[in-house]
């Protein structure tokens, strides 16, 4: 059981976005992909999710090339939450979360088993009380949790989310962190997230991958990957990892000289 990237290269408009990424991911772990804007985080995540085809290299899921899987098979095993998800129609929350069952149901409607999965996903993300709400009227935080529930409704072995904590207030962000940890450690899913918040990454991730200009700058547990030298090289800031009462956090003191 593993998700592997082998020498991924992606060019967009002649500009290299990923310049040879090698990484293997294990289930039961939360991996955070960090890096400055334009480092290639989203490109890496969509390639890992099998949604885009790299120019060279390949992604394998349990040693099979992910591009060789049928879209449906891929969707059953791997849940993906895009960075700015579109919500085109004013459907209710329960219906939206039910869309996560499409890889299983196809043309037939939701069966009893699907209803159970949807109910569990609504509860796991603490949005069961919103089931009848119109998704276009949700707040940013509610929306993020509903979209997470949508991905979990398919009970995927792998969950890949692009900036899932963007727009969450500190309380809901911490709740989401706890949820991602439970999904990985208690339920054995592989969780891969791109993040901007260094402290939340330090707190939640088992492993951190720091990207800069399409290359891996650091890869390892938070203590190693968030070393001051790495943060300075990646973001151009002076920062240090601090051991607080309730876990790790990153203190950013200013721009590097």
């Amino acid at each position: 059981m593993s998700l592997k990237a082998r020498h991924l290269q992606v060019r967009l408009g002649g500009h290299p976005v990923l310049a040879g990424i090698d990484a293997a991911f294990q289930p039961g772990q939360v991996t955070a992909i960090l890096g400055p804007n334009g480092a290639g985080k989203s490109t890496l995540l969509t390639a890992l999710a099998g949604l885009s085809r790299p120019d060279t290299g390949e992604v394998t899921l349990d040693d099979a090339p992910i591009q060789a899987l049928s879209p449906r098979d891929r969707a059953r095993r791997l849940g993906f939450i895009p960075q700015t998800p579109e919500l085109a129609w004013a459907v209710d929350v329960e219906t939206l979360v039910g869309l996560g069952r499409i890889p299983f149901t196809g043309a037939r409607g939701l069966g009893a088993e699907d209803e159970v999965a949807v109910g569990l996903a609504l509860q796991a993300c603490d949005v069961a009380g919103l089931a009848r709400r119109d998704v276009t009227t949700l707040s940013g935080g509610e929306r993020a949790r509903v979209l997470l529930a949508r991905a979990l409704a398919g009970d995927p072995a792998w969950l890949l989310a692009d900036e899932p904590l963007a727009g969450l207030d500190p309380g809901h962000a911490l709740d989401a962190c706890d949820l991602f940890r439970r999904l990985a450690r208690d339920q054995g899913r592989g969780v891969i997230l791109t993040l901007h918040d260094l402290s939340l990454a330090a707190r939640m991730a088992d492993r951190i991958l720091v990207l800069a200009e399409g290359r891996i700058l650091a890869d390892g547990p938070p203590q190693d990957a968030l070393a001051p030298a790495v943060l300075e090289a990646a973001y151009g800031v002076r920062a240090r990892l601090v051991e607080g009462d309730s876990g790790l956090f990153v203190e950013v003191s200013g721009r590097a000289p």
């Binding site: 895009p82 579109e86 919500l87 085109a88 499409i102």
Partner: peptide, 23 residues
């Protein structure tokens, strides 16, 4: 009628639908 599940999935946009395995 055969496009119904795909149209449902497109509520989440093309990336969303593609990630749900829609061809």
């Amino acid at each position: 009628m055969f496009t119904a599940p795909a149209l449902d999935a497109l509520t989440l946009g093309e990336t969303g639908a593609w990630s749900l395995g829609v061809d």
